[in-house]
Design a protein around this nucleic acid. Structure first.
Lengths: 255, 255
DNA sequence: CGGACTTTTGACCAGGCTCAATAATAGTGG
DNA sequence: CCACTATTATTGAGCCTGGTCAAAAGTCCG
């Protein structure tokens, strides 16, 4: 029943630089919700109990965790690597609805069927928890139930921002927004550098931003030429002029 | 502090055909979640208690319930009319993130500040519940807490569909999707007719679909010319060839 | 070094946007 | 009830951003 993973271009090779697993809490910069982890709201023994619900697994780049339409048998928590979540149109047009990074949950708000496909961007490790066990655990921890609601609420807020991006922003504004988003997350993990890692390729970025890979590439080039960013080895990008990028992202033009 | 409502074009006039208030339950056609109402999961006396939490109010077309950035002091339930929810860019570009219709809740998932503006499309009545009272009531009714989560989950699913629309669909596919969406909701209230009411104007539809009003108007015209729809008085539209519209909406072309 | 793939760049094209004019519609006041 | 006005919808003409098609350059890894 599951469609085969996208072939040629999608069946990626392994990548070398795997993002290390994230330990502990990471708060969202924009709102007072502790995000995408239960670590901060569970007692150590409860946390251990929660972790024991699932089993650790690994997936290679280009492989799918599940496809759109698959039954939602499991809840996932990513521990290393990166996933892309996407929907397809019959003729192959693709919209990536989000990327998933270490520490984040997948599948906590689903109905009976997945409504998107989840595919590994690079080799990734994750914890897979059978849904019934997950739900039983959550039901016995009311504070988790509330946390799940907060996560969903936060994702709804992020979705509104993405509507604005996809519906009304120019190519430069979209890419600047994306780079700023990535920076915000990197900053939460390491406050030192204006450097972000983009494990996904140009096609993925394009399908996330509602553009083509050529337009994404051209916009990267123009940002480089304007001294806004600098491309480094190992999929890393330095945001040389982060404030100007954020101004562009917010629709204030290049001023 | 709140920005003034959009002037000229937005400060609408009254409209005559107000959607009647919706009584009772309305299930979502696509998923097993009872949506946007607590009616079905509260006992009659509890329902009465819930209704007594708020006060009934009226708003005229073009007026705003709240602006982006306002504090989230209230939870709203629309009883008649229609609202549009939108975000703005500094230069005035606007993305409507959704329309709200009778029976639906507004503000159940917010943080401290609203992250969009809510403005009346036509004269609307609503129930306004102070947030602390709402939250206290929900906390004392666990089944409501779960229902709120289901509503948020459903909205997240709808958001993914909108990503696909805004990022990858053509103008015709966007409008066909919108008309089909409206039909799905109308069908849930009245199974008789392939007729929908569109109280919002072309600018609003355009800002919802990520297009311009001219493109929306042209696409309406082409649908009319192709015999897919028929325009009726009082903002009503008949979906003459609903299945063909749905095929277009799904990206299967005009076949 | 070589093959496969990705990224970048170029040339051209087109879907949808802009600007503008006209038509239709709703509301107003006599 | 009907002309008058304001607003909205439609249609047209031309343009531009971003898409398409193609080729060259750069990477990765055996």
């Amino acid at each position: 029943m599951p469609a085969p993973c996208k072939s040629e271009a999608e069946q990626g090779r392994l990548r070398r630089h795997v993002v290390p697993a994230l330990a502990g809490d990471h708060a969202c910069a924009r709102c007072p919700v502790r995000l995408q982890t239960f670590c901060a709201i569970l007692e150590p023994d409860e946390l251990a109990a929660f972790k024991s619900l699932g089993s650790t697994m690994r997936i290679e780049a280009g492989q799918c965790l599940f496809h759109e339409g698959d039954p939602t048998d499991f809840v996932f928590n990513l521990t290393s690597g990166a996933l892309k979540l996407y929907k397809l149109l019959p003729d192959g047009r693709r919209q990536i609805t989000g990327f998933l990074f270490p520490g984040e949950f997948l599948g906590i708000t689903f109905g009976e069927e997945h409504f998107f496909t989840a595919e590994a961007v690079e080799t990734s490790d994750y914890c897979r928890i059978p849904r019934p066990r997950f739900e039983a655990f959550v039901e016995s921890h009311v504070e988790l139930e509330r946390e799940l609601f907060q996560i969903a609420a936060h994702e709804l807020r992020a979705a509104q921002d993405q509507f604005l991006l996809l519906g009304r922003k120019t190519a430069a504004e979209r890419l600047a927004t994306f780079l700023s988003q990535r920076f915000d997350r990197a900053r939460r993990r390491n406050a030192d550098w204006e450097i972000i890692t983009l494990p996904m390729n140009r096609v993925d970025i394009a399908d996330y931003l509602g553009l083509t890979k050529e337009t994404v590439s051209r916009t990267f080039s123009s940002f480089r030429a304007a001294g806004l960013i600098r491309s480094l080895p190992d999929d890393r990008t330095e945001l040389v002029a982060r404030e100007r990028l954020e101004a562009i992202a917010g629709g204030f033009g290049e001023g």
